[in-house]
Each structure stands twice: as structure tokens, then as C-alpha cells.
């Protein structure tokens, strides 16, 4: 079943982005070299960047449609977004960061859900710290938890491991795999690292220079490994 359908165009400086793909349940990897337009695509899905033309639908909801003039504001899309650099709020504690989405939406506290996610990501012991006092791996786990606690309809992960060293990458990957397997939330995962994509992705969308060059399973990665991008 198709969960997310993207068909967008945008001129970004010299790069003309024309991207169309569909994502089902599980994890869809947007895979390609730096500058291919991967982050721009997820920003458009989140509503942080407006396409020049096109349409984005999530489940039955049209998020963006240039022809009908539809453009749902980012704060109404309920799409969890984990950024490359985490972007935790430095003036709030870990607990307040995790609670942020619930507080701004005015939803009642759900201690069970909070506990479950803190346990899933193993961040229960960090709750009273400030983001400035966390390691890179801890920060990204909190960022994932913060995105999950808005009960997202879709989870966007933009190179969540890129800023981490190898040890921390190994520390986080299992959490992401667990998330894919028991979360039930569809994931769009941006990466330029074949090893990561192979661990996480159920579907691979290859991007190069603003275009989709192939769509399929992990077999695309074998060919990609031989490509000259790092």
C-alpha cells in the first residue's frame, strides 16, 4: 500500500530538481551523493521548503498541490523529522525537548507512551540533562524520541548518523532497525552511505543531480557501491 507519494519540481540555484517516487510501509531510503537534492526533498515533505510545482500526498491527505493551491503548514503535517545535527533546543532539558511536541499541541500527558519511547531509545537516564551535556549518539537518540513522541504519520531521518563517529553509528543503528520493525511508522531515510542503507532500507530510491535514477530493493546498492561517490 502506498503511504507517501511525491512528485515535485524545484529550481535550486543551478540544480533543477525533478523527483517522483512512492513509499510504502517500512523504510524507504533516499540514496545518492551529496548535492543530489536528498535533503531538499525531505524538507519539501516536511513543509520547510515549497516546491515550484507538483504534489505531495501522505495517506489520504494532500500536503501540497501547486495546481489546487494546497500547502499544509509544517506544524499541521504531523511528520516527525530527525535532522542531521539533531537540533535539540539548547535551553530545554532532555525531558522538555521530548515533551515539546505534546506541550505545543496541548495534548494531555501520556506517561506510558513517554516511558515506552524512553525505553526503546534507552534515554531514560538522560532526562534531566541539557543537550549541551550529551554525546553525539545520545543527542541523536533524543532527537529520534522527540520526533516519535508527536505520534508522527511519517518519520523523516536526514543523515541521522552523518555527524557521528563509527562507534556511535553502531550504537544507534540497532535502535533504528527496531523502530522500523515494531514502530509501524513509515520511514524515509536519507543517506549517502551504502552500509547504512543496507541495514535500514526496505526500498531504495537512488537520486543523482536532482533526478531519480533507479527505484528498487537493496540490489541497487551493489551497483551503487561501484559508482565513484563517497
Amino acid at each position: 500500500m502506498i503511504v507517501l507519494a511525491v512528485d515535485v519540481e524545484k529550481q535550486l540555484g543551478a540544480l533543477h530538481l525533478t523527483v517522483g517516487f512512492q513509499a510504502t510501509r517500512g523504510a524507504t531510503a533516499l540514496f545518492g551523493p551529496s548535492g543530489a537534492g536528498k535533503t531538499s526533498v525531505v524538507n519539501m515533505i516536511a513543509g520547510l521548503l515549497n516546491p515550484d510545482r507538483g504534489k505531495i500526498t501522505l495517506d489520504d491527505t494532500v500536503l501540497f498541490d501547486s495546481r489546487q493551491g494546497v500547502n499544509v503548514a509544517p506544524h499541521r503535517r504531523r511528520i516527525g523529522y530527525v535532522f542531521q545535527e539533531g537540533r535539540l533546543f539548547p535551553h530545554l532539558s532532555v525531558r522538555q525537548n521530548l515533551d515539546y511536541g505534546r506541550r505545543v499541541s496541548g495534548h494531555p500527558r501520556d506517561a506510558g507512551e513517554f516511558e515506552r519511547i524512553a525505553k526503546l531509545l534507552d534515554i531514560g537516564h538522560l532526562l534531566d540533562r541539557r543537550p549541551g551535556k550529551l554525546s553525539g549518539g545520545e543527542r541523536q537518540r533524543v532527537a529520534v524520541g522527540r520526533a516519535l513522541l508527536i505520534r508522527p504519520r511519517l518519520l523523516l531521518l536526514d543523515e541521522p548518523l552523518a555527524s557521528l563517529d563509527v562507534a556511535h553509528k553502531r550504537e544507534i543503528l540497532p535502535y533504528l532497525v527496531r523502530l522500523r520493525d515494531d514502530g509501524g511508522i513509515p520511514i524515509v531515510y536519507v543517506s549517502h552511505t551504502p552500509a547504512e542503507v543496507r541495514r535500514i532500507a526496505t526500498t531504495v530510491v537512488r537520486l543523482a543531480a536532482g533526478r531519480v535514477t533507479a527505484t528498487g530493493g537493496a540490489e541497487l546498492l551493489a551497483a551503487a557501491d561501484e559508482d565513484a561517490f563517497v
Binding site: L48, A73, H75, E85, Y100, V104, I150
Partner: peptide, 18 residues
């Protein structure tokens, strides 16, 4: 201020006043 933090807040459901 890193305006990307404001983008992050928007994806978490905060309108511009919040």
C-alpha cells in the same frame, strides 16, 4: 539564533506564535 531550531519546532507542531 540558528533559525533551523525554529524549523525543528514547526515540525513538532508549533505554530509561528508558539
Amino acid at each position: 539564533i540558528d533559525s533551523r531550531l525554529e524549523d525543528a519546532a514547526a515540525t513538532l507542531g508549533a505554530n509561528s506564535v508558539l
